[in-house]
Simulated assay, not measured.
Amino acid sequence: MSRQAERTTADGETGSASGPDGRAVAAALVTVLLWASAFIVIRNSAGYFGPGALALGRLLVASAVLSVLLLVRGGGFPPREAWPGIAGSGVLWFGAYMVALNAGEQRVDAGTAALIINIGPILMALLGGWLLKEGFPRTLMAGMAVSFTGAVVVGLSLSGGGQSSLIGVLLCLCAALANAVGVVLQKPALQHATPMQVTTFGALSGAVACLPFAGQLVSQVSRAPAAATLQIVYLGVFPTALAFTTWAHAVSRTTVGKMGTTTYAVPVLVVFLSWLFLGEVPGLLTLCGGLLCLSGVAVSRMRGRALSPAPEAGPRSRAAGQPVAPAPGRGK
């Protein structure tokens, strides 16, 4: 690409003046579809595997695949300075996030879980403003208020479903928080190690943290049908290892800001796939609350354009499924 064809974007990154790279768009679409499918598979596996066992199985598979990819690329071990961030993000982002999300999806439908999880970027921005001294713009606070209102609406809409549904909403909120803290902890690690190193050893750290569920995993795999066990393999290979790789490929060819907007499609796809494969559709009030959550995230991301036309200091991380990829993003 010639210098004349390049320009600096509002995210402070270099992009193409002629528009997004076609392969980047294709990679982003693959990522979004795989992340959306994770919510459906998790919900479908709830009858065979406990939250911890499902998380451990998924992480073991993902760790194996990512380790092979790292060896093929000659990545090696990350430097010592990166390990605190890798271990912290691995335990929270890969471990706690997945366990909480799995537990939440045993109590609420996949579409509702996806809508709640998508408040993650606001939580990341709040933590970044506090821990990384990135500030608290007015649009961020406004977006937080809108998303909080949406979460309350979702909770009220499910109150008729009993205590289990409300616990499910709280577990999904805990998953979003664990995801956000993990992303913030990961940011310093990326200054010392490659995205592939951080992701691979983060997945390994999460798997180690979930080892207490090993006995449960072995017991439940022995009783579950082969199709249910294959779902664990699917979660580890596709929404985790492959989706993180395609997301990194997409971001490397364009900007995080542009690709981050594609993840807004995840809850929409989850609601559609949940209806198609599981026969589940969130109620109208729940959908309205979920849309408020997404609207709050959109408002919070307006700050770069609203406050100043100058480029931002750096890209803002995104949060599906949950765990976010080598480049700032959110995996499921």
Rank of each mutant, 00 (worst) to 15 (best):
residue 97 Y to I: 02
residue 118 N to G: 09
residue 85 G to T: 14
residue 104 G to T: 00
residue 109 D to G: 15
residue 122 I to M: 01
residue 138 R to M: 05
residue 94 F to E: 07
residue 123 L to N: 06
residue 106 Q to T: 12
residue 137 P to V: 11
residue 114 A to N: 01
residue 104 G to F: 09
residue 133 K to V: 09
residue 118 N to F: 15
residue 111 G to D: 01
residue 85 G to W: 07
residue 109 D to R: 05
residue 112 T to V: 14
residue 124 M to F: 12
residue 83 W to N: 13
residue 129 G to R: 00
residue 134 E to T: 09
residue 94 F to R: 00
residue 115 L to F: 06
residue 100 A to N: 11
residue 76 G to L: 10
residue 114 A to H: 02
residue 99 V to Y: 11
residue 101 L to Q: 14
residue 76 G to K: 07
residue 88 G to V: 04
residue 122 I to L: 02
residue 122 I to F: 06
residue 80 R to H: 08
residue 110 A to Y: 07
residue 128 G to S: 08
residue 87 A to R: 02
residue 111 G to L: 08
residue 117 I to Q: 07
residue 99 V to T: 13
residue 99 V to Q: 11
residue 78 P to A: 13
residue 127 L to F: 08
residue 101 L to Y: 10
residue 93 W to M: 12
residue 130 W to V: 14
residue 102 N to C: 14
residue 90 G to P: 03
residue 132 L to G: 04
residue 120 G to C: 12
residue 105 E to C: 10
residue 94 F to C: 03
residue 134 E to Y: 01
residue 87 A to H: 01
residue 114 A to V: 12
residue 109 D to V: 14
residue 84 P to F: 06
residue 101 L to W: 12
residue 115 L to Y: 01
residue 93 W to R: 00
residue 115 L to Q: 02
residue 107 R to Q: 11
residue 122 I to E: 01
residue 94 F to P: 02
residue 116 I to C: 13
residue 98 M to H: 15
residue 136 F to C: 08
residue 81 E to C: 05
residue 130 W to C: 12
residue 117 I to V: 15
residue 129 G to D: 12
residue 138 R to C: 00
residue 130 W to D: 10
residue 115 L to A: 02
residue 82 A to I: 11
residue 126 L to E: 08
residue 111 G to I: 15
residue 115 L to M: 10
residue 119 I to Y: 09
residue 80 R to M: 10
residue 138 R to H: 05
residue 119 I to L: 09
residue 125 A to F: 14
residue 111 G to F: 00
residue 123 L to M: 14
residue 107 R to F: 05
residue 111 G to P: 04
residue 76 G to F: 13
residue 128 G to V: 02
residue 101 L to S: 15
residue 114 A to W: 03
residue 103 A to S: 13
residue 125 A to T: 09
residue 125 A to N: 07
residue 131 L to E: 06
residue 117 I to G: 07
residue 97 Y to E: 15
residue 122 I to Q: 00
residue 115 L to S: 03
residue 81 E to L: 10
residue 105 E to K: 11
residue 79 P to A: 07
residue 130 W to I: 13
residue 123 L to E: 15
residue 124 M to W: 04
residue 132 L to N: 06
residue 78 P to I: 08
residue 106 Q to C: 03
residue 86 I to W: 01
residue 132 L to A: 10
residue 89 S to P: 03
residue 131 L to D: 07
residue 76 G to H: 11
residue 137 P to Q: 06
residue 102 N to G: 14
residue 101 L to H: 09
residue 79 P to Y: 10
residue 120 G to W: 06
residue 82 A to L: 03
residue 124 M to L: 14
residue 99 V to M: 13
residue 112 T to P: 04
residue 94 F to N: 05
residue 120 G to Q: 10
residue 131 L to A: 12
residue 121 P to F: 06
residue 83 W to A: 12
residue 82 A to K: 09
residue 138 R to Q: 04
residue 79 P to V: 08
residue 123 L to F: 12
residue 92 L to Y: 00
residue 111 G to W: 00
residue 91 V to K: 02
